[in-house]
Amino acid sequence: MNQNRRILLKSTLTAGATGLAISAGLLTPKSVLAAWPKAAFEAKDANTALKAALGSSNVIESKDIKLKAPKIAENGASVTVTVTSKIVNTESISIIIAENNMPLAATFNLSKTTKGTVTTRVKIGKSSDVTAVVKAEGKLYSTSRNVKVTIGGCGG
């Protein structure tokens, strides 16, 4: 009897604490995240995502960008992608996975003292083209590569 009471007390206490944490957290995001382009990240296809994120979907294919990604990814939940841009004044690097529900995975905005190389890991739902889009002096350049996924990274 006494023990039951303990458990009940404990569970109500933890529930209360997490509730507090969430409500405290909810107060901040809008002010902090003004820069996060919601429309771009929630877009369902690559072109609309590009337009929303970088202002245009006119992309020139370029050989000055190197995209390093595995041909076959055993686990789609974590695929290492490296983008190297040799284009002068690279302003930003975006990674787009065409077949994902939300194609735009990440945008890295670089300053002049940052080199045009970025490595990150992304989730890939099913076999898809991975595209790196580089923005330099107002123009967009891209290169893509197909990645085959044997186990998906998004969803069940």
Binding site: A35, T82, M102, A105, A106, V118, T120, K123
Partner: peptide, 16 residues
């Protein structure tokens, strides 16, 4: 500065 979506993997890793 990097803007990310939920498509970046769990326990994200990056190099620059």
């Amino acid at each position: 500065t990097a803007q990310w979506n939920g498509t970046v993997s769990t326990n994200p890793y990056m190099v620059f």
